[in-house]
Each structure stands twice: as structure tokens, then as C-alpha cells.
Deep mutational scan, measured.
Amino acid sequence: ILQTYRAIANYEKTSGSEMALSTGDVVEVVEKSESGWWFCQMKAKRGWIPASFLEPLDSPDETEDP
């Protein structure tokens, strides 16, 4: 089962193997590399994304803190 994550910042791809993101995009993580790059898919797009640009979809938003 794939894990679902949300983009927390815009990411512009710098090579053909990467995938561009916009803040709020929801992606499915296909593979996690120890290098800190994750292979993700979103609709018909697939590519590598730095893991630091993603957060788990089920994590609470910062605005929901008590």
C-alpha cells in the first residue's frame, strides 16, 4: 500500500527524473531512498522529490494546535 503525503512547499524539478510540486499537492510515495529522495506519483506524473518537501497527509495542520 502506498503512503500518501502532502507537499509543504513548491518544488521546481531540475532534471527529467524529478517531479515538480506545488504547495498542497497530494502525492503517493512509491519508493523511499536513503539519500532523502522519494519516488512519488501524482495522477499521470511520476518522479523523484526531496522528502523534506513532504509531510504525511494524516498529520495535523499547524493551525490546529491548541
Rank of each mutant, 00 (worst) to 15 (best):
P60K: 13
A44D: 15
L21P: 01
V26E: 08
L21A: 02
T14C: 09
W48S: 02
V30G: 02
E28D: 07
R46C: 10
K43R: 10
S17D: 14
S59I: 13
T63M: 12
G24T: 02
G16N: 15
P50R: 05
E12L: 06
V26G: 01
C40E: 00
R6G: 01
P66I: 06
A20S: 09
S17C: 09
E64Y: 12
S17R: 10
N10V: 06
K13Q: 09
K32P: 03
D58F: 09
I8Y: 02
L57H: 11
P50H: 06
G36M: 03
D65M: 12
V26T: 10
E18V: 05
C40S: 02
W48M: 03
V26N: 04
G24A: 02
P60F: 11
V26H: 08
M42E: 06
T23S: 10
T63D: 15
W48C: 02
D25M: 03
Y11C: 05
K43N: 14
S59F: 11
S22F: 06
M42V: 09
L54Y: 00
K13D: 11
K13P: 12
D61E: 14
L2E: 15
V29H: 01
K32D: 01
T23D: 07
R46V: 08
A44T: 14
K32H: 03
T4Q: 15
A9I: 05
L21K: 00
Q41D: 04
A44P: 09
Q3G: 15
E12C: 11
D25R: 00
S15H: 13
V26Y: 07
Y11H: 07
Q41M: 06
E62W: 10
A7R: 00
N10D: 14
D61Q: 10
W37F: 12
P50I: 01
D65Y: 10
T14H: 08
V30Y: 05
V30S: 05
E34N: 11
C40D: 00
A20Y: 05
S59L: 11
K43M: 10
A7D: 00
V26F: 06
W48D: 01
C40I: 05
T4G: 07
E55W: 04
E18H: 05
C40M: 02
T4C: 08
P56R: 09
E64S: 13
M42S: 12
D25C: 03
D65H: 12
P60Q: 10
Q3P: 09
I8V: 04
K43A: 13
V30A: 04
L2C: 14
K45Q: 14
Q41P: 00
M42R: 12
W48T: 00
S22Y: 05
S15R: 09
S15L: 08
G24R: 01
S59H: 11
Q3A: 12
E55M: 08
D58L: 11
K43C: 07
F39V: 03
D58V: 12
F39G: 01
Y11S: 03
L21Y: 01
L2V: 13
E12Y: 10
D25A: 03
R6C: 05
Y5I: 00
R46M: 07
E28S: 07
Q3K: 15
S59T: 13
E28R: 06
F39H: 08
N10E: 09
V26C: 07
I49Q: 02
G16E: 15
T23W: 06
K45T: 13
A44G: 14
A44Q: 15
S59K: 14
T23F: 11
S22P: 12
A7Q: 00
E55F: 04
T4K: 15
T14D: 08
S59G: 15
A9E: 09
T63H: 13
E12V: 05
S52K: 14
Y5M: 08
S35F: 06
D58A: 13
V26L: 13
I49M: 03
E18R: 04
E31S: 10
G24M: 02
N10S: 11
R46Q: 15
K43P: 08
K13W: 04
F39T: 00
E31D: 09
A51T: 04
M19Y: 02
E64H: 13
A9L: 05
F53N: 10
K43L: 05
I49S: 03
G47Y: 01
A7F: 03
R46G: 06
S35N: 14
M42P: 00
V27Q: 02
A44W: 08
E18A: 06
G47N: 01
D25T: 02
K13V: 09
A7E: 01
T23L: 11
E34T: 10
F53L: 15
W38V: 04
L2R: 15
V29W: 00
V29Q: 00
I8C: 08
T63P: 12
S15A: 07
E55R: 09
E28T: 10
S35H: 10
S59V: 14
T63Q: 15
N10Q: 06
I49Y: 02
G16Y: 10
P56L: 07
R46S: 13
M19L: 10
Y5S: 03
Y5C: 11
V30Q: 08
F53Q: 08
W38D: 00
C40T: 02
P50M: 03
V27A: 02
S17M: 11
S52F: 06
N10W: 01
F53T: 10
E18P: 03
C40N: 01
L21E: 00
R46T: 11
D61W: 09
D25G: 01
S35Y: 07
P66R: 06
C40Q: 01
L57Q: 08
N10R: 06
K32S: 03
Q3N: 15
M42W: 09
L54K: 00
I49T: 07
M19D: 01
E12N: 11
A44M: 11
S15I: 08
G36K: 05
G36P: 03
